[in-house]
């Protein structure tokens, strides 16, 4: 899809600006580009569906929409091998710790897509005593896909937005684990001893 066809470009533009401002050398830059091409074109989802959105996700994989065309079809059941978690369906209090644990079990670089109204804000179940109103309260979310449930086309759109985001990120000095540990230690100096 062309850039004009996407709706919300500000976020990506800001990312690109940041990237240009800090500058990168030619070699690292081109390796980055190669790696990002690989990462963006090989997004393996973690099968994680709690309710209706999961059925639409199955349709995404089925013959009509066929997410295999983009290379998304290698759905892994083990979080260790997945690249992104597409949270499909309401997250309730009992599920919240399980979801966080699943996220923590995933290998870097990892992404989160909030799929459906429930995960974006609690959706129709806002105000219930045991619904987490938006998974961004417990996880860092990269892409929000609204809808109840979102149509498969909407899910594709969300996935393609994620691809765009990955393509402008920087892998070296950016999204890998080493960098995250550095950030983490900068914020929590008291944990430095335990990390060793």
């Amino acid at each position: 899809m062309k850039k004009e066809d996407f709706k919300d470009n500000e976020y990506i533009d800001k990312l690109v600006e940041e990237l240009n401002a800090s500058g990168a050398n030619v070699v690292v830059g081109s390796i980055d580009r190669l790696i990002n091409w690989g990462r963006a074109n090989s997004l393996w989802p973690l099968c994680f569906g709690t309710s209706c959105c999961a059925i639409e996700f199955m349709h995404l994989g089925a013959a009509r929409h066929d997410m295999a065309r983009f290379g998304f079809e290698v759905a892994r059941n083990s979080p260790r091998q997945a690249d992104y978690i597409m949270v499909q369906g309401t997250i309730v209090h009992r599920m919240a710790p399980v979801l966080v644990r699943l996220y923590e079990q995933m290998a870097e670089p990892k992404y989160v897509i909030a799929c459906g109204g429930c995960t974006v804000s609690g959706g129709p179940f806002k105000g219930s005593y045991c619904v987490v109103e938006g998974i961004d309260k417990i996880l860092p979310v990269d892409v929000y896909v609204p809808g109840c449930p979102p149509r498969p086309e909407a899910m594709f759109y969300g996935l393609m937005q994620l691809q765009r985001k990955m393509k402008v990120e920087r892998f070296f000095g950016g999204v890998n684990r080493q960098e995250k540990i550095k950030d983490f230690l900068a914020k929590h100096p008291e944990k430095a001893e335990a990390m060793k």
């Binding site: 690989g38 074109n41 090989s42 983009f70 290379g71 892998f171």
Partner: peptide, 24 residues
């Protein structure tokens, strides 16, 4: 099946390889 990465998706497994090489 794979269609988007390279013509008829032939570069799909190369993308997978790059991805899996850099995974944590």
């Amino acid at each position: 099946g794979p269609m988007r990465v390279g013509p008829w998706g032939i570069l799909q497994s190369f993308a997978d390889m790059f991805k899996i090489l850099i995974k944590e």
